Amino acid sequence: MSSRSGRPWLLVLDIAIPVALFYGLRAAGVSNVTALLISTVPALVSSVASLVRQRRADLVSTAVIFSLVGSAVIAWLGGDARILLVRGAWISLPFAGVTLWSLRHPQPLCYTFTRAVMPRRAAVMDRLYDEDPRFRLAWRRITVLWGIFSIIDAVLRVVLTYTLPLSVVPALEPIITVATIVALQVPTHVLLRRSGTIHLVFGPRRFVDQLERS
């Protein structure tokens, strides 16, 4: 459930290019801190461009910008490259808090976020959310899972960053990111499948048309 999931080239810009930049700069003799600072530029540019293109605040892009800028300033002032390497945790932990807090509201974050990135299914999702208790329960459980997994993701990043050699961590960061996203797709789809509505959210358009005509 990411605004970047429909644009694979953004994943390359945010993940592959920064890693290649870091190791390329290190091979050229650049210091760890400088290499990490430069390698954050593609993701920063991508996030700023996303905000400009959408002309509205985007939770993911805003969080990425704040984590990149904040960790860059602290790392530059303190000269600690590992602070830059745990920037992913600066996103995961606040995201976990906001996600779990959203359970206090009528519509949890995972539902509202998915609805926002799938505007063509918004009307159907709203109808299901209003009329189908199983659909509402599925999204609340999905939100709990995303919150818990985000906490685990943050803790794992911090532990690995401060226990493994610094040269290894940049290569592990994208692996953790992709693994977390992929791992969360399984319970998300299982819960929606059990509610009997997965084909209406992610399936072919004809299923949605049938519901709208009913």
Rank of each mutant, 00 (worst) to 15 (best):
L109K: 01
A123S: 15
H199E: 13
R193G: 14
A81H: 03
V178M: 03
A171D: 08
L172A: 01
L85F: 09
A75Q: 06
V201K: 03
V168N: 13
F95G: 05
T180W: 11
R206F: 01
G6Y: 11
R120V: 13
I198Q: 14
L37R: 09
A43L: 08
M1T: 15
G6C: 12
L211Y: 04
T34L: 12
E131D: 14
S67A: 15
A179W: 10
F135I: 02
S31T: 15
R56H: 06
P170N: 11
S214P: 04
G24P: 09
V124I: 11
S61V: 00
D130S: 13
L184E: 13
I151K: 07
P8M: 03
G97H: 02
I65C: 02
P8I: 10
R206I: 10
P18G: 02
V52H: 06
A72D: 10
T188D: 06
L59C: 00
L93K: 00
V168L: 08
L100D: 01
V98N: 03
L160M: 12
R205L: 12
V41E: 09
V30W: 04
L51D: 10
V69Q: 00
A27E: 12
L44E: 06
S195L: 00
S195G: 00
S3A: 12
L85D: 10
I38R: 02
G70N: 03
V155E: 06
T177A: 08
A49T: 07
V12E: 03
R213Q: 15
L85E: 10
T197C: 08
P170L: 08
P204C: 00
W76T: 13
S102Y: 00
R53N: 12
A72W: 04
T180V: 14
